[in-house]
Write a protein that binds this DNA or RNA. Sequence first.
RNA 1: GCCGGGUUGGCCGAGCGGUUCAGGCAGCGGGCUGCAGACCCGUAGACGGGGGUUCGAAUCCCUCACCCGGCUCCA
Length: 482
Amino acid sequence: MTIFAEIKVYNTLSRSLEEFKPLYGKRVFMFVCGPTVYDYSHLGHARTYVFYDTLARFLRRAGYSVFYLQNITDVDDKIVNRAKEEGKHPLELAREFEQHYYEDMKVLNITSVNLYARASDYLPEIFEQIEGLLRNRYAYVTETGVYFDITAFSDYGKLSGQKPEELRVHRIEPDLTKRNPGDFALWRARPRDEFGWKSPWGYGRPGWHIEDTAITLKHFGKQYDIHGGAIELSFPHHEAEIAQAESFTGVKPFVRYWVHTGLLTVEGEKMSKSLGNFVTIRDALERYDANVLRIFLLSRHYRSPIDFRWDLVDQAKNNFDRIVNSYNNLLEMDITDEASEGELKLIKKIGELKENFFNSMKDDINTAQALADLFEMMKLVNAYADGHGLITEGGKLSLASTYNDLLNILGLRIKGGTDISMLNNLITILIGIRSLLRKRREYELADEIRARLRETGVEIQDTPQGTKWRIEELSEEESRSL
RNA sequence: GCCGGGUUGGCCGAGCGGUUCAGGCAGCGGGCUGCAGACCCGUAGACGGGGGUUCGAAUCCCUCACCCGGCUCCA
């Protein structure tokens, strides 16, 4: 793939597909809204984070140097309330779930984040920003806190297409001290006995939107490339971020590409804690491999909603099996010295499909199409292995590296394989004995060996080229308990 | 009420004006097999309803229906 490929992304701000051009050459600054750490994360969160991980992987593969920053919201009413219930300090509870979050991310092979930033570590920056907004008269102080005056920022609503004057439907009781019901809190006054900080505007806690702009202003500066998050956050959260940052710095646009993922739903309704229709990441990982979950989540375009059902994850399991099988078919091919015409053709065709894969990814990160390209590729390799069965060392290496390359972009990992020497020898012995038994038509014993091996996770396959074996992909639960 | 998104074959899901209507799962027929599995070859089947534009529409326009998200903490 050409370095600095012409990647197109859908920008919520312009409501159109745009060519991606970072501000500073090959350097990309990307921020994604992270979790509020008061409970375990569920598959809805996984959907978003798997996508941005894949985006970061792809950008890096395309030659960009990506600084991927994510916040950890550890200051929040939900954390305070949950901590009170459990008799813990809010930050103690937050640290616990922050750890659980990292564990989940690690198992999901989400490794592309460069820095996680906790809200509680950015109080000085938050203060500085609030002071600046007050100084420039974008904010005002009341007895309940400090609020951003949305009428002072004429661009308010540009991201979500909302008109401030039409935002009349409010489902919460308006705070009467605010000038406008749409004004949002920068600082919220809280009782002394609650978790909080002293500030120039009294004791309390920061508003929800301010931590993200404080964090990105510190690490990225006044302007950066990509801001990600789920579509539910576009209003009011991201709108408020724009208002804060652009009013504070005077630089527009604060973010050049606003990228939003679609929601994960369950029977058509958003998966969420409050609806109680959620499946935690760890529960899902007890039933399925992380690779399977990634495939399930990447099977649909990132902006479309995904409706969750276990049987669909099951389908993804079959998809992943197909990938593993094809990879093994490739590795198990016998070596020849001279490349046949068929092999040359295959290599050429695979090269074209690899190009297709990259084109799919360049086209607004169309992972569903990219997976289809991958499957087409594997079908060709399977057919070749089935028909010819012979390949040069170089050809095998080239194909295997293509597989690894593409799988890595999608964050998929193939474990097992047939190169574990000790096991290899033992299993080879057993299979040799079984082959003898089969020749003698002692199938009962032969099947017994096959069944017992399967119980321990070794799959046997009798083929015209002889008996092959592989270690079954273990679920995360199984591999953890090893 | 306002803003945004969606409705593709049994299931999932690309495609967004015209090459054979991607790809996967599940079917069906065959191959390879002692059996099984994997794999291969072949096969079928769709664009929510109604109008319109066009030589040609799943793709553009209008309209109707249904579904979802945001306007409240939320990935």
